[in-house]
Design a protein around this nucleic acid. Sequence first.
DNA 1: GTGTAAAGTGAGCTATTACTCATATTATAC
DNA 2: GTATAATATGAGTAATAGCTCACTTTACAC
Lengths: 220, 220
Amino acid sequence: MARAKKMAASPRKLPEQDRSRATVDTIIAAAARILVRDGYDAFTTNRVAEKAGVSIGSLYQYFPNKDALLSELMRRHTHAIEDGIEAMAERAKSAPLAEVVRIAIEHNVRSHLIDPELHRVLSEVPPLGKLDWEAAFTERMVSRVRDAFEAKRAEIVVADLDLAVYVVTHTVEAVVHNAVTERLADLKSGALAEEVTRMLVGYLTGKAVPAKRPSRAAAE
Amino acid sequence: MARAKKMAASPRKLPEQDRSRATVDTIIAAAARILVRDGYDAFTTNRVAEKAGVSIGSLYQYFPNKDALLSELMRRHTHAIEDGIEAMAERAKSAPLAEVVRIAIEHNVRSHLIDPELHRVLSEVPPLGKLDWEAAFTERMVSRVRDAFEAKRAEIVVADLDLAVYVVTHTVEAVVHNAVTERLADLKSGALAEEVTRMLVGYLTGKAVPAKRPSRAAAE
DNA sequence: GTGTAAAGTGAGCTATTACTCATATTATAC
DNA sequence: GTATAATATGAGTAATAGCTCACTTTACAC
């Protein structure tokens, strides 16, 4: 079903009273719960309505179709994540290269630690093919990283700057993304960020970056 | 709808005559075509049978259920990929660290260049949650990389060897995987492998690795 | 209180799915 | 040729999906 990917027409009806706003929130919360706990297969509109304790009719009063529900869920999660990203980007502007890389990683880590399970499920949800959604973050990161790299061009030895940006952004994304399920401790302690920063800075500058003391945890 | 993941009981009937073996091949081919061209949503048993030009009855004569069909498709693709992997692993045994890394990348690149679209779709197919299938390759790569790293322990400055293996394998997988759609030229020319090798070796050894001439393409 | 619109209900429609089975066709064995 | 097993067929079934709509209940305006 939902073969022809109808896109999220705006809500059939905008909730006006507190009661209905609460209903919408309940529905969204139920949707998230089902996705996280039971996976996309179990994510049916009937089930969501049931779990939310409202009738399917109510659900379709605020969401024109299933995709719209998913969309709104993503929109809210995205919003939560991108909160504060501007400040970070600003901070990166006047920072040395190593710090730029560290900030990019830090931002990525933060993204993944806000409701990590939901984040993971959303990134694997079929209707958007994984391409549209997580790619949106990466894309934004890419352009910011590119700007930062151009400002520090002199320190970077990699000939093809686009390639450098590509390697850095995808490395960060993959390493962090998988760490949520495979190396959570290293993620939280900052050890992973430490390693990856060292690796990437070394790659970019062409100079060896001394490993910090392997002893106590790094910043953050 | 295939919620409770019944696993691939062996084919209901083993094809004995040439005619039926051809039927099976046709079905598998149609399955692959549909997956690649229309995505998993369109991958229904009825459609596969239709595209293959056989009746659904015939399909269910050789595949006990939908998952079994998918399984067999994966099995065949996997087989094509892992062909020759042993030789590579052997080659890595007596090679220097840089060469080990390069071989790991090379293997990964090869995996992704055999029917790349199919590879990508299979890695995103819902029933296996992406965890089971591609993870199988990565896992095998992980253990081989780990062995190789242990043999070269002296050259590696990273304190936590597991962490090093984790970073290297996931970096390789992500960078190569995405390059299929984003940087195919660099993938095929070897430029990407070049960059990533330099980065990873630098990371592992803690020493700067001079970039090769940015001019003509690298090995292979 | 009364009118009106917002909010909420849920049986049921339509479409589609994975899968079955009684039957027909083709090939091999002798 | 005839028997027997292999192969192929496709209308039909049960389940479940997304979604509708005629209707009831609740809240606000005056």
